[in-house]
Design a protein around this nucleic acid. Structure first.
Length: 409
RNA sequence: GGAGGGGUUCCCGAGUGGCCAAAGGGGGCGGACUGUAAAUCCGUUAUCAGCGAUUUCGAAGGUUCGAAUCCUUCUCCCUCCA
């Protein structure tokens, strides 16, 4: 029987680890309670977070117990790690709302029933801390000299760092202590940008409770160019299907660069490693198969098999033969709108395909718009019911963006 | 609290009275080439009913025929001093 540690290592998740031998042994012997924190800065997780979820899923498969920690308290401070500027402050209501949304999402992928896994919110303890007792008890355990040498503050020391954010590390360290006391949490995992925060926690638990706890970080999901993956012009690739449709998510992965395929297959799917290797070994246009598998598998994990299949079918239909399918982005319109005729630019605006009419004109002037398989050359064109075929109108922007207009009564 | 420097279009960054809707780069978008890839090349990148109009250079006023550029106040940021 393999150990999770070996699996994580083999798939390439692991970046840094506090005590390699001990962790390896611990994970092979006991059910280990571990945690990963997510600050509720938005109302959905995104692709970048999902790597953490994947690790938690791997861990849980091997019987370990995840604590999904919602950072309702720490989000009020804002993690300066990897940031060049201060985060925008969120209102309390937003934080609560976002926290609930994240919690719901995590419950889809992990068993968090209080038996095999837990959900916690650090606002529960952080919000009630009293300043003087806290800095007396916990603050005394930190050396400012040492904190300042931490990687996560380095950049900010040049740009400016508020005292508020400087406290983030201490809060996160305190979380670990609190979770160790409440749940017997023995490990904290996180993205590599969390390394300084994690070791601060490991140290704190040692000093306070003389217990050995461990930290482990994973690779961040980066493109081969070194930029963060999962960002598009429109924003992040969200897990929430109302923010990013399964089809869009599928397309995003279908279009990753060749160089990133292997990494994504390892980190974002559960395919056995020999299969991953076989797929990544494909060359030339063959690699498209690997991309398709990647897109399908990941969409399946996030949205389920049915949605993944729909996205796959839609993609194949559109790119192979221009047919239509029902899972590409669709907007419904009432017939009356087209009885009088709707200028094409107005339609594009309404479905959000263009941000302004000027941009729409440019698009058309540059031969980038195709409606019902016909290149649009006149931006003043007006669409009427006669342009529809069986109540459907297919719009294609550029080479890859499709949108369907569906008529209803 | 004192002294100095600065806030420019999505981002970085030029511009110090008219030639500025504002150089250059990045990013985005479209096209060509391809494999729904990368690299490369071309075009484009404030808004609006069309060569015209309207709104932009931290905010509000002012000077001027005319301001991103000058003046006043406010605001935010940075550096040095305390």
């Amino acid at each position: 029987m393999k150990n999770v540690y070996d699996v994580l290592l083999e798939r390439g998740y692991i970046e840094q680890i506090t005590h390699e031998e001990e962790v390896k042994e611990l994970l092979s012997k006991e059910r280990v309670t571990f945690y990963i924190g997510f600050d509720p800065t938005a109302d959905s997780l995104h692709l970048g977070h999902f790597i953490q979820i994947m690790v938690m899923m791997h861990m849980q498969k091997f019987g370990h117990k995840p604590i999904a920690l919602v950072g309702g308290g720490t989000a009020k401070i804002g993690d300066p790690s990897g940031r060049t500027d201060m985060r925008q402050m969120l209102s309390n209501e937003d934080l609560i709302h976002n926290g609930n949304m994240l919690r719901k999402q995590m419950e889809k992928y992990l068993v968090l029933d209080g038996e095999n896994g837990y959900v916690a919110n650090n606002a529960d303890w952080l919000d009630q801390l009293e300043y003087v007792p806290f800095i007396r008890e916990i603050g005394s355990k930190f050396s400012v000299n040492r904190m300042l040498t931490a990687e996560c503050f380095k950049q900010r020391l040049e740009k400016g760092l508020s005292f508020l954010e400087f406290n983030y590390m201490i809060m996160q360290a305190y979380d670990f202590l609190e979770l160790e006391r409440r749940f017997g949490c023995q490990m904290q995992l996180g993205g590599n940008d969390q390394w300084s925060n994690i070791i601060a926690g490991v140290d704190l638990v040692r000093r306070m409770d003389s217990k050995s706890v461990f930290g482990l970080t994973f690779k961040l999901l980066l493109t081969s160019e070194g930029t963060k993956m999962g960002k598009t012009a429109k924003g992040a690739i969200w897990i929430d299907s109302s923010k990013t449709s399964p089809y869009e998510m599928f397309q995003y992965l279908r279009n990753v660069e060749d160089a990133d395929v292997e990494n994504c297959l390892r980190l974002l799917t559960f395919l056995p490693m020999d299969e991953v290797k076989a797929l990544s070994a494909l060359e030339g246009s063959e690699i498209n198969k690997a991309k398709e598998v990647l897109a399908f598998e990941f969409t399946k994990i996030v949205h389920g098999e049915e949605e993944a299949q729909k996205a796959l079918d839609a993609a194949r239909a559109l790119f192979a033969g221009g047919g239509d399918s029902d899972s590409i982005p669709t907007t419904e319109f009432s017939k009356e709108k087209f009885e009088v005729g709707l200028p094409i630019l107005d339609l594009l605006m309404e479905i959000g395909l263009i941000p302004s009419k000027a941009e729409g004109k440019r698009l058309i002037q540059q031969n980038g718009l195709i409606v019902q398989d016909v290149l649009v050359s006149d931006f003043a064109q007006v669409l009427t019911l006669s342009d529809f075929k069986e109540d459907v109108l297919m719009i294609r922007k550029g080479k890859k963006v499709f949108h369907r207009i569906q008529l209803k009564d």
